[in-house]
Design a binder for these strands. Structure first.
Lengths: 156, 156
DNA sequence: TTAAAATACTGGCATATGCAACTAAATAAA
DNA sequence: TTTATTTAGTTGCATATGCCAGTATTTTAA
């Protein structure tokens, strides 16, 4: 308990997986944001643009699911990108409830620029953490992010 | 590129560590928030109260460093907890620039309640992910959150 | 001892996220 | 087909976080 003599390395993050992941997210957030440099965009925006590009005009619903993000949260996060003209929403042909996200010309251009910078950052990550362990870590995190894991967690 | 035929399991998070960690943080955020139930507090607040308790009246600076959080971000995050009377700021005796964070009576009470709920959630996490791998994961994340890692990453 | 530099915090502004309530549209049930 | 239910998004409100600029102190250098 309230014992100020403990080691600074000891903390809730060594026992709580949620605390551990968020703490690492803060550290990486800063590191990758820095890597995006003067582009004016952040690491999270790179992830989003990148996934939109990889998905090829996904619906908001599908994109949100892939990103394991709340649909409304995705909407909010997309605001600045829409405002700055990097993405646009196009109504679906068949289902009028559906909207698809698409990268604009400017969006593709900035995405290429960000990808280049991201690649450099990811290489530094792999070098600092070890390429093998790096891949293993991402696989672990992908599993934790899966519906199967949520199912197991909730059921347990 | 924009090839909609790809597997839904494929995504930027399999290549970008930052994307992978944030994605997992969103999943765990929801699972642990749910675990906090009707207490009105979230998993992040549990982490904070917990670390304050473990540190024994830390300075804002020290707490921010331990949590790998920006000092101003910590200040913002503490707002709701201060408003609801779970923590209080006490000026340091020696250095008048310094403020220390302390749990109030209500703060200790809610912290005990949250810890109980957190323990149940953490047990489910360990069961779903494997106790061994769970500990290994937290160690990996703790390393990634360390100044040494940031140093290696930035230098590399 | 006085001026310059480093510290610890605060406040404002911006993005990141989630939940609950609400609207529009499509689908299943009567 | 009329009605109930489910789906896909939107909007408002709240917490989470970070950067930058500004204030109060303390420490260091002249």
């Amino acid at each position: 308990m309230a014992d100020a003599t403990q080691e600074p390395e000891d903390g809730i993050w060594l026992y709580c997986s949620n605390s551990a992941v968020r703490r690492a997210a803060r550290q990486l957030g800063r590191l990758y944001d820095d890597a995006m440099g003067d582009t004016g965009l952040k690491g999270t925006q790179f992830s989003l643009l990148s996934q939109i590009w990889r998905s090829g005009e996904p619906t908001l619903k599908n994109l949100a699911e892939a990103m394991v993000m709340d649909l409304s949260a995705l909407g909010h996060t997309l605001k600045p990108l829409l405002r700055d003209g990097f993405v646009e929403l196009v109504p679906d042909e068949k289902d009028r409830r559906v909207k698809r996200v698409r990268l604009t010309e400017a969006g593709e251009a900035i995405q290429r620029e960000l990808t280049s910078r991201w690649q450099a950052a990811q290489s530094r990550f792999d070098a600092a953490f070890g390429k093998e362990k790096s891949e293993e870590l991402r696989r672990m995190l992908a599993f934790i992010s899966s519906p199967e894991f949520a199912e197991r967690f909730t059921a347990g």
